[in-house]
Each structure stands twice: as structure tokens, then as C-alpha cells.
Design a protein around this nucleic acid. Structure first.
Lengths: 228, 228
DNA sequence: ATTTTCTTTATAAAATCTTTATACTACAAG
DNA sequence: CTTGTAGTATAAAGATTTTATAAAGAAAAT
């Protein structure tokens, strides 16, 4: 969820420092600018997930910077300002700011407001997918696809295959596989393994007679190979 | 952009009056509630575009109301509170509030913050509708349609289906579903799940004997598939 | 008071796992 | 070259577990 990129545009070096330290210690990726020109440049070249903008910049008025940003920038913009006039606040919010904090601000509240603003944009969908060419194993969705078609596996078959996939290339011994899938009391039931490996091959191999994914290591175990 | 529906949940009659007058004179469509129970009821029966929630309600704590709302309500929630403690503010924002204003507030600022909050939802047509061909699940309106006909679901059936729809494609385990729908004390009552899945299938599947939406993953759970 | 919804029970059906039987492969010894 | 042996592959029958569904009783809502 984190590691979001935040751009701080503020001319006061103390505030920049404070924000850099606070944000970085909260796993944000911080860049900063001390004037409007530099801020707009950085925003354009590396669009951040959120911008913290001070209204009192030396080279250009904050409201103007905000308008320029909003011509193309759609992620949240949080205003930080010494001004607490209602007029300023209304103007900033109506110009496209998502939030407005008056200096001096409380860092805890700032962080919470940042999280709140980021929540809407950062929809987390990072699936740990093991990709072996035509075979795709999505561990979070618990699904196997071959050539984009979902293959139905039983609970045991899935356990076995996900073990193989997570240790691609390694030889996994009979003992190890039996212990992991069936439990410590089953390490002598090699026949289980043979039955289930055969079933898996029937489902995932293109030619089950000449297995390409699950390779037999006679006398030792099996090895899973991810083709490219 | 306007005529947006706003629900005010506040026990102080003066504040409610003030808000009603202010908001209505700004072309908002206002409804109001003086306690948590009433507020939750109105929100569920006529989901507004934005909710203004007072944290200091007589019958239930505001943080709890906020959490309950966020279980299904996705539009902006703006907190109004006499509390200005940083702790309260952080808690509310992290529980899903979009903004937090301390009483007494300035009406101009409030209106600007409302406009800002509504901007994101109203512009990008943010109706969270899960569309699966003939089946349409509108999470904000809490309605299910099949071939444009509304299907009546009980509260439990709806909870279950919305969980499925929100995580389309993923295998959801028995444990997870039981915990989310019935609560942590029910994770062994797999039979509940079977009964309700059968009921859901009877209502949404074209051929309940050959389910196309809710797929059984024997020994693990169920999976919802959105056909196109 | 009546209807709706939820919980519980019972039983049939389906899916999965375990076991058995038999055939296959590779390799070494006679 | 044949034969034996250890390890492996696979199909299929039987046992077990899991699931589907109806329906009755309890609880809640209207």
C-alpha cells in the first residue's frame, strides 16, 4: 500500500526537512522543490501520487500553481499554508485542492489526511503471480490458468502445485512433499505422491506422457520447471 | 454538478437547522437524522452522495457509526466534531472519513470542502457497479439486477454476494466468508454457507444446477466469476 | 398476527481421497 | 540377450468427505 511518491513544494527549508523526515519514516517516497518553477518541473517529469503544496511561494502565487497543476494532474493535492482566511481556503479547494491544512500543522493529522487522500487513488492490486509461460499461478486468487483458461484443481492438487511453483527448479524430495502436503505422518505414502503427480500432469502438461513441467528425479523426488 | 443528496447526522437541532438552510440554499438535497440509528437507516434506504456525520451522537459513538457505514458506503463522509484532539482526527480519517472539521466551523469553508469531496465522486461517475453481463451489482445502491429486473435479496444474501462481487475471481475460503458475514464466532458453521449459497444460486443463476457465477472450490471455499 | 428471514436437521448427490491392481521403465546381474 | 528388481505411472474401484437442497422449526421484522 505504501511507497507512494509524494512531492513537497515549499520554500521554507525547515518545513521541507520536517516533511522529508516524517514522510520518509512512514515509507513514503519523497521529492521536494523550493519554488513553483522547480515544483512544476518535477511534477511533470515524475508525476507523484500526491502533492503537498505551500501557497506562499517566492516566485509565483500558490493559487496560480494549483491551477496550472490541475490542468493535467489528477492525483490528490494537499495545501499547506500560513493563511487561515476562509477566502483563501475556499479559493484553494475550489481550484482543485483536495485538502487544506493551516500552519503550524500537527504531523499526525497531516499523515492521516495524506492516507485518506491516497486511499481513493491507490487501489492495491498486487497479485503475486508465478508466471511460467503458458502456465500462470495466482497465489492470492488461488487459481491456475493455462493459456488464460482456468484449470480446476482439487485442494490437494493445488497444495502440491503451489509448492512446486514456489521452488521452481529445485528438486523436492518425496519426504518433503509428503510432509508438506499430507502431514508428518504420511512420509512413507509415496504412492499418494505418484497418484497426485499423475493427476497434475494430466491437467497441466500438454503431453502428459512427456512431462515438461513436473520432472521425475528417480529415487529422489520431483522437480518443477518453468518454461519461458 | 449540484442537486447532490447530502445526509446530515447530528443530534444538535441548531446545527441541523443551520446545515439544512445553508445546504438547501446551495442547491443540495438535504435529509437529516438526529441519532446514529436513524442515520444508518436513512443512509441504507436512500444512499446519499455525501454524509456529514457528527461524532458526538447520543446513542452510539461516531467512530463506530463511521465504521458501520464504511462497510458498504463508498461516497464521501465528512466528519463534524467538537473534538479537536489529534487522536480523534487521525482515528476518524483512518476509519474512512474523507475530511474532518472542528466545530464551530465556517459555513463557507464547509461548503468548499463539500464541493471538493463531491468533485471526485460526481465527475468520474464513480458508481461501483460490478457488471457481469446479465447480472449487475450496484454496491452503492445495494441493488442487484438480472436482465434489468431487480432481484430481492435478504440482508445476509446481499452481504455474501457483495463480498463475492468485490473480489471477483478470487477463491474465498469458508472461514473468511463465515467470519465476514456472520462474525468470528461462526467459522465452523459451514452449513450456513451452503444453505445461503444455494439460495443465492437459486436467485441469480440461470441454471442453478450448473452454476456459472458462484463456483464451488471443494474443501476450500467458493469463487465468483463475472462472465462478460 | 402474519410474513419474512434465519437456523437447524436430514438426506441425497457429487467430489475427492485412498487403496488396489497392473503395467511400464531403467538398469544390473546372470 | 534374457531375467529380475526397484522405482515409477496410471486406471479404476471402494471409502470417505464434502456439498446441495429441501423442509421444518425458531426468531425477527413488519
Amino acid at each position: 500500500m505504501n511507497n507512494a511518491a509524494i512531492l513537497v513544494i515549499d520554500d521554507e527549508v525547515q518545513i521541507r526537512r520536517l516533511l522529508e523526515i516524517t514522510l520518509e519514516s512512514n515509507q513514503f517516497n519523497v521529492s521536494s522543490a523550493d519554488c513553483a518553477k522547480e515544483g512544476l518541473r518535477i511534477a511533470a517529469s515524475h508525476p507523484p501520487d500526491l502533492i503537498i503544496l505551500d501557497l506562499g511561494l517566492p516566485d509565483e502565487h500558490g493559487h496560480s500553481v494549483l491551477k496550472k497543476l490541475r490542468e493535467w494532474y489528477t492525483n490528490p493535492i494537499l495545501i499547506l499554508s500560513a493563511q487561515s482566511d476562509e477566502e483563501d481556503i475556499i479559493k484553494a479547494l475550489d481550484n482543485g485542492a483536495n485538502d487544506y491544512l493551516v500552519k503550524p500543522f500537527r504531523t499526525g493529522e497531516l499523515l492521516a489526511r495524506i492516507r485518506s487522500a491516497l486511499r481513493s487513488t491507490l487501489t492495491e492490486d498486487n497479485n503475486p503471480v508465478v508466471d511460467c509461460g503458458e502456465l500462470q499461478i495466482d497465489l492470492s486468487a488461488r487459481t491456475i490458468k493455462k493459456n488464460n483458461e482456468v484449470i480446476k484443481l482439487t485442494a490437494t492438487e493445488y497444495k502440491l502445485l503451489s509448492l512446486f511453483a514456489q521452488q521452481e527448479g529445485k528438486v523436492l524430495t518425496h519426504q518433503y512433499l509428503l510432509r508438506e502436503v499430507w502431514g508428518p505422518g504420511y512420509i512413507n505414502q509415496s504412492q499418494y505422491l505418484r497418484v497426485f503427480v499423475a493427476q497434475l500432469r494430466k491437467k497441466i502438461e500438454t503431453d502428459p506422457n512427456r512431462p515438461a513441467y513436473i520432472i521425475t528425479e528417480s529415487g529422489v523426488g520431483y522437480r518443477f520447471i518453468a518454461k519461458e
